[in-house]
Design a protein around this nucleic acid. Structure first.
Lengths: 151, 151
DNA sequence: GCGATTATTGCAACTGTGTTGCAGGTGTTG
DNA sequence: CAACACCTGCAACACAGTTGCAATAATCGC
């Protein structure tokens, strides 16, 4: 391998932009980072470490390497990390303009997080001394899948 | 013990109402449950298992018993459980009228969660099939303490 | 292209939070 | 008072994530 044969599995645009984004941080664009970032960018919801491991094909990456790739993505600002109801980290690709305000739907059943494009809500007034960095509106309940499965 | 001597450390009203709340569920008002519920009700922010253990005086309660008391409080609807940024559970007393909408401030630094009384924000429109149970507005940044300590 | 440099990877062992099973204790009820 | 159920404590476990160190491979300069 290592010829100039890009995998056809992803759209060329995505492949390219993932690599560019990684290089722009000054770090190496390794297969591990590329695959993980592409996966996150194409995922409709935030993914757990375990889900990512599965999606990449089970023996593709070392457990620890994946953890480190994810840590690095978060540090570099290319991804976000949240903890779900089962106290498991979930990762999602950061969007270009970087949201200071965001809306999510969290399923209490399966723990998945769905990114809604919906509105940035309030202009809150904080207790003194508190500095605000992000606003997140969390809608909680059951996702469509879980509503159907457990009626 | 077990005479009619309430500990003077808490306000009589709180002591009483904690016991009443517990009895109302049909369960026993044991010292463990009383102490934990009183502590949660008097806490300004959500507490972790560890913090509660400390606050109760170190060798007061078995680790596992505390976990079980907390689980029971959550199941009974007397407390809420959230996970903080360090993927640690944090517990807070449920308020009487039970909030369907709530506002929190989460410190990205220390992970603590502060309950703001602030407004119930938006009337969102969800994708089809999703059922909404709670709305949470999460403000994230640094709390007063952490802003001061790490300037 | 070819090698040196050094970031990245993989392995193994570890940490910390939360959970489960079971025996013993404590309160409640008839 | 005795039986019963609930609660507690201990020990062992499970799981997600972390750390240290040696081996590997991506990038840079030639």
């Amino acid at each position: 391998m290592m010829t100039t044969t890009p995998l056809p599995a992803e759209s060329p645009a995505e492949v390219d932009s993932a690599a560019v984004l990684i290089r722009r941080t000054g770090a190496r664009a390794t297969p591990a980072r590329l695959h993980v970032l592409r996966l996150l960018r194409s995922a409709p919801a935030a993914l757990s470490h375990h889900e990512i491991e599965q999606a990449l094909g089970n023996p593709a990456l070392d457990r620890v390497t994946l953890y480190r790739v994810l840590d690095w993505l978060v540090e570099s600002g290319l991804a976000h990390r949240n903890t779900d109801a089962q106290r498991v980290f979930r990762f999602s690709a950061a969007t270009r303009g970087e949201h200071a305000a965001h809306t999510h739907f969290r399923c209490d059943d399966c723990g998945r997080v769905f990114c809604l494009d919906a509105a940035p809500p309030a202009p809150p007034h904080l207790p003194q001394g508190f500095s605000l960095l992000r606003i997140e509106l969390d809608l909680r309940g059951r996702c469509a899948e879980c509503s159907g499965e457990h009626p």
